[in-house]
Simulated scan of single mutants.
Amino acid sequence: MKYDLVVVGGGPAGMAAALRAQKESVSNILLVEREEELGGVLRQCVHFGFGLIYFGEELTGPQYAERFAIKIRQSNIDVFVATSVVQLKPDGVLVLSGEKCGLLEVKAQAVILASGCRERPLGTIPLTGTRPSGIFTAGMAQKMMNLGGYEIGKRFVILGSGDIGLIMARQLKLLNRDVLAVIEKEKQCGGLERNRVHCLEKYHIPLQLRCTVTEIHGKNRITGVTIKNLFNEQEEFLACDTLITSIGLIPERELAEEVYSDGRLPDWLFLCGNACYVHDAVDDVTLEAEETGRLAAQFVVSGKITKRAKHISSRTGNAANSDIICIGCPKACALIKTDNGFAGAVCGRKDPVPSCLCH
């Protein structure tokens, strides 16, 4: 089986890249997704905060993903769901495995890798004690609760202040669960300022900086953790029945490593979205994926490309030098106080949310 373009990953990046490539006159396209449905991680992100930059309105993750999934269904793009790419060969052949296709080899003129990223596991940090039940990564906890409807615990400690961990802290609080603390080893919160304020400060969830978990207690189920202050070396015990970790994301691009040689990727292989680097906002993922789809289409048509897709970030760059930033969306724009309120939100918001009013 042959395709002009195969896109690996049916999340927002993969869908946006495939649609843009089709718009650029590439008609023979295959989109491969290992989950049962298109949408990627957005399917489990039931909170609002997506789409302000790309659509100009605030959506939930499933709403954002569905807008692209509808376009895919209305197109003539072939879609294999519940299908994994188990191998990518140097000649552009992909080996697929899934219920719909069985074990199948597909030859592609160009490949876009939009496989997203995975969470850094607990085993990557030095931690003594047992490994009982009740320990989850933030993404897995989110998936089990929002897609599976599972009850995963009652008293929580969250290790790491990444955005998913902050969002889960808020969700657990809204479900009347005890969130004892968010533990962060660095001197500042690892997530967006918007999420620190809206998820922790607003709900009075303690953020312990320069601290880490050094020991897990419990046999069958976790009963508590030892927290160490990295500044003064003091330790304390927190009784809990669930530990959620949010300690970083790793771009998932092992398939690209199979064809990486002489310090570069082959011209026919393109990376986009979080498989390229971890983005702050899904809107950035979409914009970059569209550019990647355009370049891949250019390669299919002409056999060459003029440049690789540029990195896109919704951060404005000057926010770090401002005392007041907007936390209405992930752009974190620097705001200026005027007689009529605040100005400076470049996403077009008429009602920027200054951080100084939320402290």
Rank of each mutant, 00 (worst) to 15 (best):
V85C: 11
V95Q: 09
P90Q: 08
S97D: 05
F80S: 04
V79K: 00
V93L: 05
Y64E: 06
T83G: 09
V79N: 03
F80T: 05
F68D: 11
Y64H: 11
S75H: 04
N76Y: 04
F80V: 04
D78I: 07
I77E: 08
S75D: 02
T83Q: 01
L88G: 03
D78Q: 13
I72P: 02
V95C: 06
Q87R: 15
V86C: 01
V79S: 00
E66K: 12
I72D: 05
V85M: 09
I77V: 12
V81E: 05
V95L: 08
F68A: 03
V95N: 06
I72G: 02
S84H: 12
A82M: 14
G92S: 10
K89M: 09
E66C: 05
V79C: 02
R67C: 00
S84A: 15
N76W: 08
Q87K: 15
G92V: 08
A69C: 04
F80R: 02
L94C: 11
A69V: 10
L94H: 00
T83L: 03
S84T: 14
K71T: 05
D78C: 06
S84G: 11
A65E: 05
D78S: 15
S84I: 09
R73F: 09
G92F: 04
P62F: 15
V95S: 13
N76L: 03
A82F: 13
F80L: 10
F80E: 10
I70D: 10
R67N: 06
I77M: 05
S75Q: 07
L94T: 06
L94P: 03
V79G: 05
G98L: 09
K71M: 12
V95A: 10
D78Y: 10
I77P: 07
A69H: 05
S75T: 10
Q74K: 14
D91H: 09
G92M: 03
I70R: 14
P90C: 02
V86F: 01
D91N: 15
V93G: 05
P90T: 12
E66N: 11
Q74M: 13
K89G: 01
V86E: 02
F80A: 07
A69M: 05
V79D: 01
N76E: 12
A69W: 02
G92P: 02
S84M: 15
D78F: 00
T83R: 00
